[in-house]
Design a binder for these strands. Structure first.
Lengths: 195, 195
DNA sequence: CACTAGAGTGACCATGCGCCCACTCTAGTG
DNA sequence: CACTAGAGTGGGCGCATGGTCACTCTAGTG
């Protein structure tokens, strides 16, 4: 069924399809065929818009990173209001949604992807690194406001929170957020800093 | 070059070869061909000793879990001597060696593997779950000895420590242990419990 | 209204995977 | 010393993957 009609935003359409496949079927099923089929387009579309499949995946991850960065401002604006524990729990729960977790798993699983992402300027483990920076920024703001201990080691606390929360979600196997468990983790890590 | 001579412990030989390939070349290169080539045996050997490749991988992970469990007793025996922080740092650094990290990455990457491992009775994320149980046991012992706060939430602290430490190593990309970073994580998480 | 540049299509290709199995060799048996 | 059960070998099969490209259709142009 050949069509000459242009798709609307084929790149984003493919990104969304890939996210659906990833969350629904897992990394093992994330193939170029599965993505294009899910998007309802021919295989050729992907290769017209991306150099190769790994380039597509790289841009997919970078696209998600951009969204996380957009949310970073939100968390930082919360500094000073509500409770530190509550703000962090909410940010971690909403930040590590099933798609974000699947994306992290994807990066872990695909060796090649890490190389390309590093070439794209995203050092360390992407998504996690961005998320840690976001949390560190918030914690610094709270510290400046005197709401957490002045000697709190922000640069250690941030990746610790992310790591522990990340594991929680990985363990849950892409399941729905478990805010209670995340809140306990946040409380445990910040217990000393909050006094 | 056909040989009828029996190999010595071909299963363990293949396990070791797989670990080498995994650490050296990454998950993407861990194929049945690569493993048997690394072991210096023909492809057929693997299929004589294991039903299929995923069964081999499953047993590989279970083999590593057994080693971790064997080390659990060591950590628990340390309760009461040295420092809590030091004991945990050492256990986490030696426990999350490159092979263990690669093994966790392998489990994350292979959807099929998780299903099989669960069927084998290993619930949650294997290796991580075992390690958390090990740390929880140690922390409980220290709490009974009065060396950490009586109200410390051991069951939250343990997976938090594992998660944060795990991320450290994943970020480092199978690199050598970074005891300093791990020690800071341990101190941050236990700061309140140690008062 | 003829023309064309651009976008989507899908049969096809090479590659590499897990797996099979006819075969060879050896060590043990009586 | 003939026989055989068992273990290791490796060419090759079927399949799914990522990638190619001659083709078709459409929207826009002068």
């Amino acid at each position: 069924m050949p069509t000459g009609v242009a798709l609307r935003d084929p790149r984003q359409q493919l990104f969304d399809a890939a996210a659906r496949v990833l969350v629904r079927d897992g990394v093992g099923e994330l193939t170029s065929r599965a993505v294009t089929a899910e998007a309802g387009v021919a295989k050729g579309v992907l290769h017209r818009h991306f150099a190769d499949f790994d380039a597509f995946l790289t841009e997919l991850v970078l696209d998600r990173i951009a969204r996380i960065e957009a949310r970073a401002a939100d968390l930082r604006d919360r500094a000073g209001s509500g409770t530190v524990t509550g703000n962090l729990t909410e940010a971690l729960v909403s930040g590590f949604d099933p798609v974000a977790v699947a994306m992290i798993v994807l990066v872990i699983a695909r060796d090649e992807l890490r190389t390309r992402l590093r070439a794209a300027g995203t050092a360390r483990l992407p998504l996690v690194g961005e998320a840690a920076a976001m949390v560190a920024g918030y914690l610094t703001a709270e510290r400046d406001l005197g709401r957490i201990a002045a000697d709190a080691d922000v640069d250690t606390l941030a990746p610790t929170l992310i790591g522990a929360a990340h594991l929680r979600f990985t363990e849950e196997e892409h399941g729905p957020a478990a805010p209670e468990a995340v809140r306990r983790v946040v409380e445990a890590v910040l217990a000393a800093a909050l006094r």
